[in-house]
Nucleic acid binder design. Structure first.
Length: 290
DNA sequence: TTGCGTGTTGGACA
DNA sequence: CTGTCCAACACGCA
């Protein structure tokens, strides 16, 4: 679920909702989501003020006062909900936003802020998400961040071409590799490859620079449109107010196996690449082999 | 009932 | 550097 556009939507929503607020309390229903000693985590962030919320690749970064930053990855099904908490601290009953698609049974962490009854709930059905806090000055050394490639929306056309030409493997594998370029996942690689008329299994060394340029442009176009639409809601993604994204309504190939290509009318096909379903139009995205 | 597939990353291995 | 397979987990579906 959460690829760059979804994480970007959440980051903006969080920034809006909690910047300037101070963390009063953290409650763990399932502390395993925090990938370090929970008591230390709690002690480190409590009483700190939220300075801002950023995104790096598919990671969320919540900057706190006194030089601390919370790193969050949402995995497949993680999400935040901005909520109202009743005044009695011990009993945390979560009043969910009306449109929320996240089952309360998978609430794992509850943050309470000093201001009003504001709270934040971390929900994650599959528990693949992770959260930890680190010293902001060490950001360059955090293993998760250190490995990331250039931001998908910041890389220039020439850098993009330089990085992808002369590689051997299949284009989709490389696009999914966060160490090469950060932010794309299964949905947006398929949508971008369709937009650029490139077969997902295309070997990169057979792609001309002009084609890579098309792909770079396609990625920007798809991601920017998806951000404008608030991301894609397939199963249980929603923003911090429980609202669904709308970009799934504009998917041209993802999840459309057997349906007709919106451009040429042929049936969309599905193949496996790196154990991941890959959707494409066989007519619009021909495979070139040597 | 059983098995399979699902938006993620990371590690082991050839 | 590549690609492949598997693991973490919970759920819906055939």
């Amino acid at each position: 679920m959460p690829e760059l556009p979804e994480v970007e939507t959440i980051a903006k929503g969080l920034h809006q909702a909690i910047a300037g607020k101070r963390i009063k309390e953290v409650k763990a229903i399932f502390p395993g989501i925090v990938r370090q000693n929970f008591r230390i985590f709690k002690k480190t962030i409590i009483q700190k003020e939220i300075k801002g919320v950023r995104r790096r690749g598919k990671y969320l970064l919540i900057d706190l006062s006194e030089g601390k930053t919370i790193l969050t990855h949402l995995g497949m099904t993680g999400g935040f909900l901005f909520i109202n908490l009743p005044n009695s601290p011990p009993k945390v009953s979560v009043r969910r936003p009306p449109q929320s698609r996240l089952n309360s049974k998978h609430d794992h962490l509850i943050f309470r802020f000093c201001e009003s009854n504001a709270g934040l709930c971390y929900n994650d059905q599959r528990k693949f998400g992770k959260i930890k806090v680190f010293n902001t000055t060490e950001e360059k050394n955090i293993p998760e961040l250190k490995k990331l490639g250039l931001e998908a929306l910041e890389i220039s056309s020439s850098e993009f071409i330089r990085i992808f030409k002369n590689r051997k493997g299949r284009i989709k594998s490389a696009l999914l590799n966060q160490q090469i370029i950060a932010g794309l996942g299964n949905i947006y690689t398929d949508e971008s490859l369709f937009e650029a008329n490139i077969h997902p299994a295309q070997k990169m060394n057979l792609l001309k620079a002009s084609k890579l340029k098309d792909l770079h442009k396609a990625i920007r176009k798809v991601l920017n449109k998806a951000i404008k639409a608030g991301g894609s809601s397939i199963e249980n993604y929603s923003d911090i107010d429980g609202r669904m994204g709308r970009f799934q309504l504009h998917h041209k190939v993802y999840g459309r196996e057997g349906e007709f290509c919106k451009r040429c009318g042929r049936k969309i096909k599905r193949i496996k690449i790196n154990q991941r379903s890959s959707y494409f139009c066989p007519k619009c995205q021909p495979l070139k082999d040597a």
